[in-house]
Amino acid sequence: MRAVSIYVWAVAMTIGASTTVAGPATGDVAAAACTSCHGKDGAGNAEAGFPALAQLPHKYFIKQIADFKSGARTRTRDLHVGDSEASEGYGYYVSFMKSVAKALSAEDAEAAARYFEGLERPTLVPVAADPAVIARGKQLAVNGDWDREIPPCFKCHAVDGRGVAPSFPPISGQHAAYTERQLQAWKTGSRTNDPQKLMKATAEKLTDDEIRSVAAYLATLGTQSQGGGK
């Protein structure tokens, strides 16, 4: 895991450099700089923790790039290769994108957003998970838990979690580890860029167990192939 991380870190730095050199590049070049981690098919990479980007609404996508760049997406300090502690910490993952986003021109960001928005959400490959865990996750996504004022995820992210453009991203067919990390980041106050704190309000009511369950369930709805990152 550690080796993989260092490898991708190196890739990120080269990409950052090459995008800058390329100057106002075409969309293809911009997207190429991203596909090494997020996949040509936009499926991301479960192993390394790179999210699927296919079908992200344009406005949401551009906002995330801006927020990585300005630091608004996260409250935690950036971590760097060589930092011994917390290699799984939220800031660690965000710091990949921070350097990428900083090197990205507005035109390239636009082009990349268009490219990924136009891709099909990757097709289903069953993931091994405990059916009881999946069932608990489904209950939360479809019905919520109103006694604790937890609304169903699918009321905001649309039936089946396919998202509602322009502000509500799709959450189905996402790698469980990524979803889990985002929910934890909101819960602990590390991800802070959700409009009107709409996501934090829900995430902070979830137990760790519920976060794992709902992330696992969402990953079963159109899970992507493993090899997306190559």
């Binding site: 009321k155 905001c156 649309a158 039936v159 396919r162 998202g163 509602v164 453009a165 502000s167 509500f168 409009p195 009107q196 709409l198």
Partner: peptide, 20 residues
């Protein structure tokens, strides 16, 4: 506005049904 739209018109999902 983020959910119900700037003119209170609601927001539809890709399916064509109102999500909000």
């Amino acid at each position: 506005v983020i959910c119900h739209g700037a003119n209170g018109e609601g927001t539809k999902a890709a399916s064509g049904e109102y999500a909000f």
